[in-house]
Amino acid sequence: MTAIETAFTPFQSLAGGVLIGLSAVLLMFLQGRIMGATGILAGLVTGNAPGERSWRAAMVAGMVAGPLLVLAVTGQMPVVDVPVSLPMILVGGFIVGVGVTYGSGCTSGHGVCGMARLSPRSIVATLTFMVVCFATVYVIRHVLGI
């Protein structure tokens, strides 16, 4: 499948980034926890204590409600274009699940919260997944031509 061009949106992206940061700060202020999607999802699907599951379920419900709130306010659902094939979604999703479990975090946990704490582990993790992602997209699009 071919790449879809997207418009450069510095102001919206910056504003959205500030909201993501605010949610991380708020979670630390209220519950004293790192805002990491990996930890939230893993705790929800593999957690054994029911008290650990319910608040994570509430958080995921809030996340899902995010784009719906945008739809309610603006009348338009945010664009979600998936420019890759079904096998790539399946394989990519599975690989991401394995990677974030062994790597103990993803873009939100390491890339935002851990980096903001200047954690050496998070800085190394973030540099690693960013560089590998750049290389992967280059190979897929410009070497393999998928």
């Binding site: 790449a3 879809i4 997207t6 949106t9 919206q12 992206s13 910056l14 504003a15 959205g16 980034g17 500030v18 909201l19 993501i20 940061g21 605010l22 949610s23 991380a24 708020l26 979670l27 209220l30 519950q31 805002m35 509430a58 958080m59 995921v60 419900a61 809030g62 996340m63 899902v64 409600a65 995010g66 784009p67 709130l69 945008v70 945010p78 664009v79 979600v80 274009d81 998936v82 420019p83 890759v84 939100s108």
Partner: peptide, 18 residues
């Protein structure tokens, strides 16, 4: 917290894999 995060992901454009 989830709602603010989800709103940020949606507004920022990170919600769009393209």
């Amino acid at each position: 917290v989830g709602l603010i995060f989800g709103l940020g992901i949606a507004v920022s454009g990170m919600i769009n894999p393209a």
